[in-house]
Every structure is written in C-alpha cells, then in structure tokens.
Design a protein around this nucleic acid. Structure first.
Lengths: 225, 225
DNA sequence: ATAGATAATTTTCTATAGAAAATTAGCCCG
DNA sequence: CGGGCTAATTTTCTATAGAAAATTATCTAT
C-alpha cells in the first residue's frame, strides 16, 4: 500500500507500530478515548491511516500498562478510570518507592540534576492552571517530570522501570480528575521542599520531604467526596 | 487454515496469541531460549505450528516483562541474563515492597491464607533439590508461590501487579543461576519465620521477618563470586 | 406482544503475500 | 590479501483476505 501523504505521527519513527502506540497513548492520556469505550481495530486503523495489524500490535503493548484491557474474542476496550480508592492505593505504592528514590537520587545527585529539578519546579510555578486539561497540561507534565527525574537517577534501573510503567495510568487519572489539580500551589511548595534537601545534599531530608509530599497527596485524594 | 492436530498449547485457550504467549514464556523461564538469541517470527511460528501474526503479538506482550527486547526493523531477541549486580538491584526493589506486603497481608490474613502459606513451605521442605533446573523446579515454584500469595493478599492490587510483572524476570534468572538455589535450607527456614509471624498474627514481626529474609538473600547474591 | 430460534451482519483473529529494510554473499580493484 | 561497492538473500513489517466467533436483526409460534 502506498500512503498518499505520510501519517503525521510517523515523525522519525521507523515502524508504524511505534507511531500507533504513541498516538493511542496520547489519546488515552489526554482523555480523548473515553473509559469503557470499545477499541475496534478497523476503526482505529482507518482513523490513523494504517492497517489493522500495527494497531493490534500497539494495543497488545498497551495492555501491560493497565490503560487498555482485552477480552478474548471480544477485542480491546479502554480501561475504566481509576476510582478514588484505587488512586489512594496507587499512592500507597508510591509511598513505598518514592521516598527511597529521593534518598538514593539525592545521595548521587550532581549539579545538573539539581538544576533540572529546579527547572521543573519553576515551570510548575509559572505554568497556567486553567479549568480544563489543555490548560494545565504543562503543569502536570512538569509535576511528573520532577518525580520521573528522581526515579531515573536512583542508579537502580528497576526503580525507574516500575515508576515509568505507571506513568500513563497516573496521567490518565488526572485528565479525568479535577480535584487533584486544584492543589497546584501546595504541590508546588512540597516539591520545593524536596528540592531544598537536594540542594543541601541531605538524602534523609529528601526522603522525608518526599514522604511528606505523598502523604499530603494521599490525604487530598482520600479527603474529597 | 485447518490444523491437522490441534497444537498442545491451545488447551482450553480461545486465542492462538494467548497460547503462543504462554509457550514462549515457559521457554524463556526454563531457559530453553538462550540469552541473546534472536527470536525470528517465522521460525517460532513454524515450531509452534501457527502463523507469524500471533507470534508477533505474543512477542509484543513479552517485551513489557523485560525478558525480550526489540530493535526496530531488526526484530526481537532474548534478553541477556541479569548480572549479579542487576539481581542485587532487583532485590533492593523487593526490599522496598515485600516487607510492606507481608505487614499488610498479615494484618488481613485469615486461616485459609495461613494454611496456603504453610503448604508452600512444606512443599519447599520436601521438594528435591537436584543439580539441574528440572530437579528443583518444584522448589522454586513453591518459593515463588509463597511471596506471590503474600503480594496477592495485601488488599492493594497495585502491589500485586508490580510483583507479578517481575515474576518471569526473576524465575528466568534462577534458571541460569546455580548458586541461589544451593541456599535452599536457609531460604526455607526464613520462610518459616515469616509464616510463624502470620500464625501469631503479628504484622510488624511478619514485615521484619520478610525484611530479614530479603537482606539475607541480598547478602547471598552479593557475596558470591 | 414476547420468547426463542434462525438468519444476517459485524468484528475479531489468523494466515499469507508482498514491500521495505537489513544482512549476507560475491565481485572488482587496489 | 583487503576495502568498498553491488547483487542476492533473508527477515522484518504491513496490508489484506478470509475463517470463526460474537452481535444484531428478523421471523415464527405461542
């Protein structure tokens, strides 16, 4: 098959499956694919201007993230949005991992890392926090970048891997949840506290600050509704 | 296509991809697919008596486990066996999660769980620990079942999910590593200690026993060679 | 009407053919 | 003998057709 004009998502990618995977991931995260919605391969393929094969392959990969679920002989569906309780359990998991991440990363931190972290905090501070997802997208990305940078600099690839595997799951929740976002100011201040510990090279403090941040987050998630 | 005799791995499964996935997983775990070996779709398909499509789909799923890696336009390969250092880092991750798992599971444990755990310990105690993989397969399965049961009974599905996602990775390592197995006796005694804490309904003790178990494991992994 | 069965349609899933890329082999010339 | 170019082969990757299952629609009998 000769495509009339190359699909826009194939920027630099060599394989259609990769492009489809990325495109679907973006749609899942930003909420344009609605929870519970069936994902028919043919329709998606048509929409993305490719055949069904790379779509199926991309969906198979996405299944592992938990954002898509598959029923034998009945195809794929968009996973339900996490409930508040599920999100609380998710934060419980993060509470086990991220304070340790912060401690390890702080112990190994160089100037470049500290500056990168500072950059994310600054981005968060100045990013708009409007009413809909498009408006606070930058804020959320900076938020995640902060945690992600720390996970990536623990020196332990497994810690990074576990963290990243839940990336989309987390971001998708936020796209559907208005409340967590409204705590932008507090969240920003808590990140600053972690950053300060990094600046003064105090691993234990960094761990404690991260624990505090997540405990506050947990309280915010649990308190509402 | 009409298969002359149904492939043995399609027992009860409705979809070929599922069967292929399971078959490949088994081959990866028991070491019959060697580290670094290229996984050519056509060859695997022929061997499993199916076409290339379900093979590709199964490989796409396996990529997420870390046991298989993919290079664009160059296909899939069996991942390298974890080094000792990587395995130590893996145990570090487990040290963050599993003591908490034990504590949570112990706090919620009922009689049935305690009995199931006791069963795995008993299986371990009586299982043969011969020189090659086939011989201590039962032992390793019981070992893993112990940890897996605990993860599955924390009440937090994320803790279970993270744990299971590394299942194959771990088991595969053991198939290639002779040393960890030789500590069968110690490992068994340590499991007993955790079990005792469960019996007496002492969550903190259970967590501490689990921590001790993993710290000993970490020491065993690090000490050798 | 409505329940149950049957037919028609849709959709998933698998096989296969062919295009694009990568690998290997062969060759020429230094 | 060896480096670099081209041709041949292999292999991945994508599209597509068709089989099997599931879903929807239609029809009949009560």
């Amino acid at each position: 098959m000769q495509l009339p004009d190359p699909p826009p998502f194939l920027n630099g990618r060599q394989v259609l499956t990769d492009g489809v995977h990325e495109a679907l991931l973006a749609m899942l995260v930003d909420g344009s694919l609605k929870p519970g919605q069936p994902l028919r391969t043919e329709a998606l393929a048509q929409h993305l201007q490719v055949s069904a094969t790379p779509v199926r392959e991309a969906l198979a990969r996405l299944e592992a993230t938990g954002m898509v679920r598959r029923l034998a002989r009945r195809g794929y569906r968009v996973a339900d949005v996490p409930t508040r309780e599920e999100m609380a359990q998710f934060v419980e998991l993060r509470l086990l991992l991220e304070p340790a991440n912060a401690e390890k990363a702080c112990a190994r931190a160089d100037q470049a890392l500290v500056e990168s972290l500072a950059q994310t905090v600054e981005t968060q501070r100045t990013a708009p926090t409007g009413p809909n997802y498009a408006n606070f997208k930058d804020f959320l990305q900076a938020d995640w970048a902060f945690h992600s940078l720390i996970a990536a600099n623990t020196g332990n690839p497994f810690l990074e891997q576990v963290f990243n595997s839940f990336n989309g799951y987390m971001q998708r929740y936020r796209a559907f949840d208005q409340h967590v976002i409204s705590d932008a100011r507090e969240s920003c201040a808590e990140h600053s506290a972690v950053l300060d510990a990094f600046r003064s090279g105090a691993p234990e403090e960094a761990g404690a600050a991260m624990r505090g941040h997540l405990e506050n987050l947990l309280a915010r998630v649990r308190s509402t509704e």
